[in-house]
Simulated assay, not measured.
Amino acid sequence: MVPETPSAAEVVSLDVFRSLMSEFPTGVAVVTSLDHDGEPRGMTCSALCSVTGIPPTLLVCLRRESSTLNAVIRCGRFAVNFLHADAQHVAELFGSPAKTKRFDLVDWSMGRCGPHIAEHAHAIADCRVASTGDCGSHVVVFGEVSDVTLHRGRVPLLYGRRRYNVWLEQAARQTALCPRDASPSD
Rank of each mutant, 00 (worst) to 15 (best):
V2G: 09
S7F: 02
A8C: 08
A9I: 00
E10H: 05
V12C: 05
D15Q: 12
V16E: 01
R18S: 12
P25T: 01
V28D: 05
A29V: 07
L34A: 06
H36L: 10
E39R: 14
E39F: 04
R41Y: 05
M43F: 06
L48P: 03
C49T: 15
S50R: 07
P55N: 00
P55F: 08
P56E: 05
L58M: 14
V60I: 15
E65K: 11
S66C: 01
T68C: 10
A71L: 03
G76V: 03
G76R: 08
A79G: 07
V80E: 03
N81Q: 08
D86I: 00
A87V: 06
V90D: 09
K99W: 10
K99S: 13
D107P: 00
W108V: 03
S109E: 10
E119K: 03
I124W: 07
V129C: 00
V129H: 05
T132H: 04
T132A: 00
C135T: 11
V139Y: 05
T149C: 08
R154M: 08
V155M: 04
P156I: 02
L157E: 11
G160M: 12
G160S: 09
R162L: 13
Y164S: 08
Q170D: 15
C178N: 06
P179Q: 11
S185A: 09
